[in-house]
Design a protein around this nucleic acid. Structure first.
Length: 333
DNA sequence: ACCTGTCAAGTCTGG
DNA sequence: CCAGACTTGACAGGT
């Protein structure tokens, strides 16, 4: 099994390279001249995209091929007061530059629209803004010229006192989405509401690929071990939604998220780095069934945590682990 | 240079 | 019905 590692949004090693610079609505309004304020938003977005490209170059230098973009590339893009603004008129070349780099270097990229995207909601207004957010994320991937192998990962959402009904509502609402949005979505188990088993059930009904978050599964489960679900999770990556728009010959590798609890008191929060031991146990359990796996590291110290984990793997060299490059390993079952 | 409150957005709990 | 917690990086406004 070949395992590639990636990280999320920002680097703690490349300085002054935030891809998430923003502007509040209060300061937008304070500018007075609306056109000037919009130009400023566009400048910030261009800077975020420029920094994203800098991060991708840093990734390439370290052989990191898996990366999640910041969802805040364009400040206020989905804000209700700015719906007449089309940021892509000006920003498309910057998005293309990022997308070209991704394609040229065969990187796997994604977004994670944050927890305000809730397709399980009973509220019409919340559903509408959730769909708007998904459309926005799809539009950014389109502007980069990336096919549907680049996914938007989301959670099911709230339970509203009736989890079964809420899961059904997620499916009903998902069914109303256009296919080009649907086939960009992956579903992840969360740490409070929809556990891995419940998320898997929704994936089976919708045909969505499931991203297993091992940390979430550890704090929110029904007594199962994460690898006990793996064969079924693997199957969710063989559905049509897991494939690209364009004809593809190789299915997308499954993806998992890994992070470690911050401390004994606060087990949900993310620690600076990632503990090797639980991850290694999981990888050894699934290695036989899984030719390729991508692991997204969600640690507080971002890319530094990735390098720390790679160092930890090095001490297991010869024990069924082969270091392939700066960000990937081969694990022999 | 550093500190504190706030931010576009949603849900859940407790009062 | 409403305030506060949750959680996160970064702004905004202060010292």
């Amino acid at each position: 099994m070949i395992v590639r590692f990636g990280y999320v949004a920002m680097s703690v090693m490349v300085s002054n390279a935030s891809p998430s610079k923003t502007m509040t609505m209060a300061s937008f309004n304070k500018i007075g001249d609306r056109e000037a304020a919009i130009r400023k938003l566009e400048r910030i977005a261009a800077e975020n995209l420029h920094n994203t490209l800098r991060l991708l170059r840093h990734n390439l230098a370290s052989q990191i091929k898996v990366y999640r973009f910041s969802s805040k590339l364009i400040p206020l893009a989905t804000h209700g007061d700015l719906q007449d603004w089309n940021p892509f008129e000006v920003l498309t070349p910057s998005f293309e530059e990022v997308g070209d780099f991704v394609k040229k270097n065969k990187m796997r990229v994604s977004f994670h629209p944050d927890h305000f995207t809730v397709l399980s909601t009973p509220r019409e207004d919340v559903l509408a803004s959730s769909i708007r957010d998904l459309q926005h994320h799809k539009a950014m991937l389109d502007a980069m010229g990336l096919d549907a192998t680049a996914k938007n990962n989301i959670h099911i959402g709230g339970a509203y006192g009736d989890k079964e009904r809420s899961a059904e509502r997620f499916i009903e609402n998902f069914d109303t989405l256009t296919p080009d949005i649907q086939n960009r979505i992956t579903l992840e188990n969360d740490d409070k509401t929809f556990n891995a088993l419940e998320t898997l059930a929704v994936c089976k009904k919708t045909g969505l690929p499931m991203v297993l978050d091992i940390h979430h599964q550890w704090v929110n489960n029904e007594g199962e071990k994460p690898w006990e679900l793996w064969k079924e999770i693997l199957d969710t990556w063989k559905t049509p939604f897991a494939q690209a728009d364009a004809p593809v010959t190789v299915p997308l590798a499954p993806k998992v998220h890994i992070s470690s609890p911050k401390n004994e008191k606060d087990i949900r929060s993310h620690a600076d780095g990632v503990e090797l031991e639980p991850l290694l146990t999981f990888l050894r359990e699934i290695a036989t069934d899984t030719p390729a796996l991508d692991v997204m590291i969600e640690a507080k110290r971002k890319d530094e945590a990735l390098f720390g984990l790679m160092d930890a793997f090095k001490t297991f060299s010869g024990e069924g682990i082969e270091i392939l490059d700066g960000a990937s390993i081969r694990l022999h079952p």
